[in-house]
Amino acid sequence: MNLNSTLYAQLVVFFILAWFTMKFVWPPIVKALDERAKKVADGLAAAERGRHDLELATRRSVEALREGKEKSAEVLAQAERRAAQIVEEAKTQAKVEADRIVAGGKAEAEQEILRAREALRDQVAALAVAGAEKILRREINAKVHADLLSAIKQDL
C-alpha cells in the first residue's frame, strides 16, 4: 500500500466518468423510465375508463331492451284493441245495412201489395161491371145506371 500520483489520476478519471454519465447516460434513461411510467399510468387509466364505459353501455342496452319490450307489448295490445274495435264496427255496420235492406224490401213489398190491390180492385170492379153489365144488359141501360155503378166502384 504505497501512495503515489496514481491517486490524482484516479481522481481525475473519477470525475470525468461521473460527468460523462451525468451528461449522456442518466438523462435519457431516466427520461425513458419516466415516460414509461406515464404510459403505464395512462394505460391503466384508459383501461379503467373503458371498463366504466362498458358498464354504462351494458346498463344502457339493458334499459333499451326493456323499453323495446314494453313498447312492443303496448303496440300489441293497441293492435288487439283496434282489431276488436274494427270487428265491432263492421258488425254494427252490417246490422244497419241489413236492417236497411230488410226495410227497403218490406217497403217495396208493401208497395207491390198496394199496387196489386189497386190492380185487383180495378179488375174486380171491371169484373163486377162486366157481370153487372151482363145482368143489366138484360134489365138495365148501362148509361142510365152509370153513376150508380161508379158509386159501387168507389165502395170496393
Partner: peptide
C-alpha cells in the same frame, strides 16, 4: 486493491 485508486475515489 491499490490504495491509490480507492483513496483517489474517496477523495473525489
Amino acid at each position: 486493491a491499490d490504495l491509490n485508486a480507492t483513496l483517489g475515489m474517496s477523495i473525489g
